[in-house]
Design a protein around this nucleic acid. Sequence first.
RNA 1: GGGUCGGUGGCAGAGUGGUCAAAUGCACCUGACUGUAAAUCAGGCGGCGAAAGCCUACGGGAGUUCAAAUCUCUCCCGGCCCA
Length: 404
Amino acid sequence: MLTIEDSGFCQSRIGQIETKSGVVDTPFFMPIATKGSIKHISPEEIKQIGFQLVLGNTYHLWLRPGDDLIDRAGGLHKFMNWDGSILTDSGGFQVFSLGARAKKNFGISGVKLTEKGAEFIDHTDGSRYMLTPEKSIDIQLNLGSDIILCLDECPPYPCSYEDADKSLKLTTRWAKRCFEHFHRQISKNPKKYSKGRPKLFCIVQGSVYEDLRKESTKQLLEIEFEKLGGPKEGWDGIAIGGVAVGEPRKKLYQILDWVTPLLPKDKPRYLMGLGRPEEVVSAVCAGVDMFDCVIPTREGRHGRIFRWNSKYKTETISDLKKQIKSGASGEKTANFYETINITNEKFKEDFSPIDANCDCYACKNYTKAYIRHLFRTKEAFGFRLVSIHNLTFYYQLMQKLKMK
RNA sequence: GGGUCGGUGGCAGAGUGGUCAAAUGCACCUGACUGUAAAUCAGGCGGCGAAAGCCUACGGGAGUUCAAAUCUCUCCCGGCCCA
């Protein structure tokens, strides 16, 4: 499934993942379509930029419009008019994000965890939903997802050793249930999946503790050997979760150092929720194949633009790697790109494109002054232009990472 | 001409003797955002200063008072009503 090549400079894995909907070249970045839409951009435009896979969210699509409805619509691909591949996050991240947010806003957690699953309180009407590992799989199967994620618990940071330990073990037990349920459902419907079944990924947890990260990885990888009644297949890929939840930046690199050597080489590795360009480059060099992040779209909507620093030649992964510097705190910075805030006054009369060398729709047709004007007048077209540009930047980054 | 109400920071608009360099909103400036409850959130927004603080300010001027955006007189300007 994956062709692995060692560049000699750093470990980078160049290959392909084949899903039931098509081929995805690794390493790759996924734009986020939480609710079945990449905010402000059409699937056609996403495809035009070059993306082959987008991410949807189990929890959000379950509540609205409902996985049954999407199933009746012919699946999420058809529903949102996307003919590439789709990866769905299990709802595990919402255990973290909605729980923390409700706690901050209302003093009570919006999520209650039990052995059975995660009980959510819907923020819009207060109604309660129980998301179990089995339910999460069922929803993702209904959505027609190409890559399904196990329901996990994504603990916040800071997290005590004891809590992280408890949490990782719950994630393992849930992963086992997901694995079992997934294969049972697949084998129950041989016709439906005769042309290919979705893939199932587990998620490594363990917070910032070396032995817990390793333990989590080990426990999950053992699952394929267990007698689970279904086909004796292992995971189709392994995700690393629970990062970028507020921990010090250098912890990310440590976690990758602890976990990636333990992973099977022939299976894709997915670093969930990451990240900044330098983090993506570093992670690719550490052997990660897949990324997703809200940064290009969310920060784009908030006016931050990513662009290449023309002072440096960055056509290959080696060029990019050379421009990354590690600070004393372990934090990494990169010279190969820069960010600007388009709302800044200095762009008021800047009638040049964001990046004269960029061939994206925004750069080919519009000036910074115009885009700034759109932002200040809250015109949605501005969000669209910057989102397209930022996603193009991330796409170009991933293309460069495929070049030796 | 008479009566009446009013003139507050870029705008709108509170405040009606001290705790007022002046609420709040908008605008403006800057920053944050990592498996999206995010077109969101935070900070700043008279001048000088790192700060303590000092100076200049609630239409103009003159007063009362220890103290005035707030009270008095006068001038200027505006709304409404009457002639």
